[in-house]
Structures are given as structure tokens and as C-alpha cells.
Design a protein around this nucleic acid. Structure first.
Lengths: 217, 217
DNA sequence: TACGGCCTCACATCATTATGCGACAGCGCC
DNA sequence: GGCGCTGTCGCATAATGATGTGAGGCCGTA
């Protein structure tokens, strides 16, 4: 399942840190350091030229700062993952970075091992960030939301059956349901067989689709 | 010099997991397990009675689910930190939890040590969450504003992939899709593999659920 | 022209689902 | 007490899905 190496590009104006990051990443199997630049001046041409999968972007840089660099990258190459690096976790920066589409947000004091983990995470579709920053992000969220709750349409499913249908909708496999609910695999089968009968379907996907569309969740 | 222990309350309907969480937390210095309940029915009275600092809340519970429980806690006791526990990281739940004021969001498969870390983090003002969930949270944010660069990307699925995803949602099997579109079974497999990669899912049900919830149909 | 993305197809292997046939216990009901 | 329904569990088999590896053609763009 080994695909090509992850191509990483660094923007970091501090020469020392840039060098140590370069050494760290350059010496890691599975990663390919395609560049380590001191500024974002040519970011628009850097990206198509170096074709990174992941960019590590220092926020505090002279000239074009990291937020601006991030915006420019996302404007032209939204698929490139950008992880911001910063010393401070001040609210305003986090807000700007998040709104500009950052895919991760780490402190410079992050230990090397964690930094490498983070690159893997972002490649896997995750968004690495420290808990403190995550908290900031959550606080940026608008609290007010329209809740919608309805406990109608029993659809003649028993309570247990509805419960299990709900798990199917969540993407659970038979095994996971059995584990989660502490019952045997055969019991799960049994329930699902009944659910299929009652909903007049013949596969998990049909059941999930029907459940979501008829609001049985 | 001893500050008070962190008072932790668990809501988890799976008896096995509830028990193992109880043992884990109960045996940890600095933590005091003030309760481990199987449902949220009495959440409004549980909280003032047990006075937890941190609540671990399973999302999938029969009766009052974790999101609703979270809302009720935050409505009356906003200072209590609530960390959500779930098996899957689907967008809709994350969105609801975040909007309802969750202070953290962890997968049930989180190793015990990490779970304990998370409780410490949330007490320290952090918001523990897995990178994959953090990514979801970031995605909930308003996208790049100024430039019109964003033509609503349907999760970067190709036209053909969207088409096939649509058929999955309709409950078609691989065979049916192949027949319907006049392509080979292996080609269908191939498309679906790609779709899974792009959506970060590993089964038809997850794909269908994600498609319906994110309006990719 | 070379490269990358998309669509097509094949083959192989392992894991999971779908389905049928039973079975037993608890519960509410007449 | 019998009856029906629900929830639990077992076994067996066939069908389907998940995943890896590899490959050729078409097309647009660097």
C-alpha cells in the first residue's frame, strides 16, 4: 500500500529552525523534502514548481506573513495541505488561519516526533493541532444553532432495532455493533435480518439510505 | 498545597465499556469518579448532585442521546467540561456537538493513557480531539472569502465518481452498477476504491451516510 | 513530449454480508 | 397455560464487498 513519498515544503524565516526542520524531515523515510524557504515572496510559483503535498508554514515571517502565504496557496492549490507553525497561540492568529483554510496548527515547540506524526495525520485527512489551539477553534464557533428533534415514525421497528439501525447509519459493521453493544455477532445478524424485512430492503446501503431519508435517526 | 481531585462523571450505555472506564478513572490518582451512568435521563439532576468537573459523554445512547445530554448540561452548568466519546467521526455529529458547546471529542478506541491525558488537557483549558475530528471542525468554518476561487467542490469527486456514489445511495450493489452502466465489475470496484479514499471511508454504508449528510447527491 | 488525472479492466485474496433453519428465555395478554 | 413478539445465540453456505497490484488508453496542461 506504499504510495509515493509525501512531498513536504517548509517556509520558515529563522535559518536555524529551518535547518533543523530540514534535517528532521530530510532524514525521515516516506517524506521527501522538496524545499525549505525563508519567505513566501514567490509562493505562487513555488507551489506549482515544487508540488508539495504538505506545507509547513511559519506564521511570523517578514514580508508576506504565513497567513497571507496560506491564503495564496489555498487560492490556487486548495488540495495542498498547509500546517501552520507558530510560537504563540493567540486567538486572532488562530482565527485568521482557520478562516484562511489551514489544515493544522502546531506550536514550534512541538517535539520532532509529534511533528512527523502531524504530517502523517494531515496526509490521512486529519488536522493536527494542540489541544489548547483546538479549544480556541471551538470557541470561535457560533453557539446558536437550530436543534431539530423528532421522535416520530416508529416505522414499526422495535426500540432495539432502531438503535441498531442507527449504528448502521453511523457506519458500524456487524462486528463493531456486536462489540459496542456487547452482544454476539449472530444476534446482530438476527436483528438486521428483521430490520431488512420491516423496511423491505436487502442490503445495508439500502437500509442506511432509507433510514436517513425517512428520518429514522 | 493539594488541589482538589478532578471530579469525573461518565455517561456510557455499554456496560462493559462503562465498567472499564470506571476502573481506569477510579484507579487514577488525581481523579475522582463521581458516577458512571448508563443514560442521560436524569442529567439535569445528576449534575448538581454529583458536581463533576468533567463529563465523559457517549454520543450514541438510547433515549436521550449524548448531544442532547450535552445541551442540557451546558444550559444549566456551562462551566462543566464535556468531552464527547464516539466510535465514528461523522460530520453531522461533530457539527452538532461543537455547536452545542462540546469541550472535546474523542474516539472510543482512544488508548487509556490518551484518555487520561485528555482529561488533564480539558482541565487545563485545552480541547482534546483527534486530528481527524479536528479536520472536520475546521471544515465547518466559512471558506476563503474574498476571491471567488471556490467553485463548490463536491469533495473533489470526479463526475463519474459522483454518479456511482449516487447509485450506491440508491442501494445498488456492485453488480447492479456494473450492469446498469455497462462497465465491468472490476471497474466499479476501482471507482469505489477511489471514492473511499477521497471521502476517507472504508465501507459502503459510511460512504452512503456521508453522501446523504453532505448532500453529495 | 512528458506527466498527471480519469476511466477502463483483470486477477487474487481475505473479510464481511445475506439468508435460511433452528433454538431458548422473558414478557404481556387473553 | 398457550400465544405472539422481542431479544438472544449457533451453524452453514453462497454472495458480495474490501483491498492490493498492475496496466492500457484518452486528454489536458505544463
Amino acid at each position: 500500500m506504499e504510495t509515493a513519498d509525501t512531498r513536504v515544503l517548509i517556509y520558515e524565516d529563522n535559518p536555524d529552525l529551518r535547518l533543523s526542520l530540514s534535517h528532521l524531515l530530510g532524514g525521515t523515510p516516506g517524506l521527501e523534502l522538496v524545499g525549505a524557504l525563508g519567505n513566501c515572496q514567490q509562493v505562487e510559483t513555488d507551489i506549482p514548481r515544487l508540488k508539495p503535498d504538505v506545507v509547513l508554514m511559519d506564521i511570523d515571517m517578514p514580508g508576506i506573513n504565513g497567513i497571507e502565504g496560506l491564503k495564496r496557496i489555498k487560492a490556487n492549490s486548495p488540495k495542498v495541505s498547509v500546517v501552520m507553525l507558530t510560537v504563540f497561540e493567540d486567538n486572532d492568529r488562530v482565527f485568521q488561519a482557520v478562516c484562511a483554510g489551514a489544515d493544522g496548527y502546531l506550536l514550534k515547540k512541538t517535539p520532532p516526533a509529534k511533528l512527523l506524526d502531524a504530517i502523517g495525520e494531515v496526509r490521512a485527512g486529519g488536522a493536527p493541532m494542540t489541544p489548547a489551539i483546538a479549544r480556541q477553534v471551538l470557541r470561535l464557533f457560533p453557539k446558536p444553532v437550530a436543534p431539530r428533534q423528532q421522535e416520530d415514525s416508529p416505522a414499526n421497528l422495535s426500540a432495539r432495532e432502531q438503535e441498531i439501525l442507527g449504528l448502521l447509519v453511523e457506519g458500524y459493521s456487524y462486528k463493531m455493533i456486536a462489540h459496542d453493544r456487547g452482544i454476539s455477532l449472530d444476534t446482530v445478524r438476527s436483528h438486521i435480518k428483521k430490520i431488512y424485512e420491516k423496511l423491505h430492503v436487502r442490503s445495508m446501503t439500502e437500509a442506511v439510505s432509507k433510514a436517513l431519508r425517512q428520518g429514522l435517526t
